[in-house]
């Protein structure tokens, strides 16, 4: 129980750190890193809630959600980078 509480707290802190950085920085790359840290915080809360102690089998449903979440996060990052690059090119022309 204390393990789940500890890691949930860490996940919340990560989310809030990322949110702060996301709101405070202007460059796209900074925002993307912050967004990824926020996502990691959410994943950490999910996996912490799925933890059932050292002997118990963990809940597979949040694990599956986090797994798809990681892949979606990286594809969203790649799309944002491509759009950002296009935007810069358009501004330079």
């Amino acid at each position: 129980m204390i393990t789940a509480l500890l890691y949930t707290a860490a996940g919340l802190l990560l989310f809030c750190l990322g949110l702060w950085s996301f709101l405070m920085h202007r460059p796209l790359l900074r925002k993307l890193i912050a967004l990824n840290v926020m996502g990691s915080g959410v994943f950490l809360v999910f996996v912490a809630l799925a933890y059932r102690g050292p002997e118990g089998a963990p809940d597979p449903v949040p694990h599956a959600l986090v797994l798809t979440g990681i892949v979606v996060a990286v594809s969203a990052t790649a799309l944002a980078l491509a759009l950002g690059r296009r935007l810069e090119e358009a501004e330079r022309d």
Binding site: V47, A48, A50, P58, H63, V66, I70
Partner: peptide, 8 residues
Amino acid sequence: ARLQAPDV
């Protein structure tokens, strides 16, 4: 790995 999520 610590939280027993090896797939993740």
